[in-house]
Amino acid sequence: MRESVAVQQPPAEAEKSSAEDIIRAFTQSVENGKRSDQPYPHWIVRACLPADTVDDILALPFEAPSLEGVSGKRELHNNTRKYFDVENRKAFPVCEAVAQAFQDERVINQIESTFGTDLTGTYLRMEFAQDIDGFWLEPHSDLGVKLFTMLLYLSKDPRHGDLGTDIYDGDKRHVGRSPFEPNAAMIFVPADNTFHGFEKRPIKGVRTSLIINYVTDEWRAREQLAFPEAPIA
């Protein structure tokens, strides 16, 4: 009589984090965030997204675009910038999940109450940024049509520890730099003194981040928006 041999089944693929999971992670990160009032109010928050969500964003099949020897402003390369827009929400589940989370009224309410901004009538804009050597940004404030800015750092390269956002005072004097940690973010509400940028320095590999803004109806590039027909209620 033959002994029965159990057939080992391959492990089931882990279920991906949903928008609800992302909401929970972000809510907790904001509750544990650290505020600084110098030189303007800004927050550092950590563990912003579930770990698998970060991995899925990093796995998006977008190549880092060439700078063609030009930098200083992101808008100089508008033709190669990538967004969690309508097209990419449809194509990639992680883009859809993250966008749905940041469109959710619970996230909106927490942002408004914690950071002191009114997002009524604004639109969600999420840019997937991939910065390579030669990239730099001049000091700018984001004041105008942006009512909230979150710079979410993603890349896990250990060489990126000094690639955080540079912080300037009202006279555009360099006064500090945010920590660049994967799944951590710098958050602020744009004002006339919220100067930030990126001092030119060597970038090994690709510096990857997600830039999350809520913008007013005056934003002209509607194709960049996650939900161009659905302003925040």
Rank of each mutant, 00 (worst) to 15 (best):
M1N: 10
R2G: 08
R2T: 10
E3D: 15
E3C: 12
Q9P: 02
P10S: 08
P10E: 11
P11T: 13
A12I: 12
A12V: 15
A12L: 15
A14E: 15
E15L: 12
S17I: 03
S18Y: 06
S18H: 06
S18R: 06
I23S: 08
A25F: 13
S29K: 03
N32G: 10
G33H: 00
K34V: 13
R35Y: 00
S36Q: 15
S36M: 11
Q38V: 12
P39M: 08
P39E: 08
Y40A: 06
W43V: 05
V45Q: 00
R46S: 12
A47T: 11
C48W: 03
T53D: 02
D55S: 14
D56G: 02
I57E: 08
I57K: 06
L58D: 04
L58N: 06
A59S: 13
L60Q: 06
E63V: 12
E63L: 13
P65G: 05
L67D: 03
L67C: 02
K73D: 13
E75A: 11
N78Y: 15
R81W: 07
E87C: 02
N88F: 04
R89S: 10
K90E: 13
V94S: 00
A101L: 03
R106D: 06
V107Q: 01
N109I: 03
Q110E: 11
E112Q: 13
T114D: 06
T114S: 14
F115Y: 14
F115Q: 05
T117L: 07
L119K: 04
L119Q: 05
T120F: 10
G121D: 01
G121P: 00
G121H: 00
G121R: 03
L124Q: 04
R125E: 03
E127F: 03
A129C: 14
Q130D: 06
Q130L: 10
D131E: 09
D133E: 13
D133W: 11
W136N: 07
W136I: 01
W136T: 04
L137I: 09
P139W: 00
G144E: 06
V145S: 10
K146D: 15
F148C: 01
T149L: 04
T149G: 00
L151Q: 12
L154H: 02
P158A: 02
D162F: 01
T165C: 09
T165F: 03
D171Q: 15
K172S: 07
H174D: 00
V175E: 05
R177G: 09
S178D: 08
F180N: 09
E181A: 08
P182W: 05
N183E: 11
A184C: 12
A185Y: 02
A185W: 03
A185D: 04
M186T: 11
F188Y: 12
V189A: 08
G197Q: 05
G197F: 03
F198S: 11
E199K: 15
K200P: 02
K200L: 08
I203Y: 04
G205I: 06
S209A: 09
I211V: 14
I211D: 12
I212F: 00
V215N: 02
V215S: 04
A221N: 09
A221Q: 09
E223S: 12
P228G: 07
P231H: 01
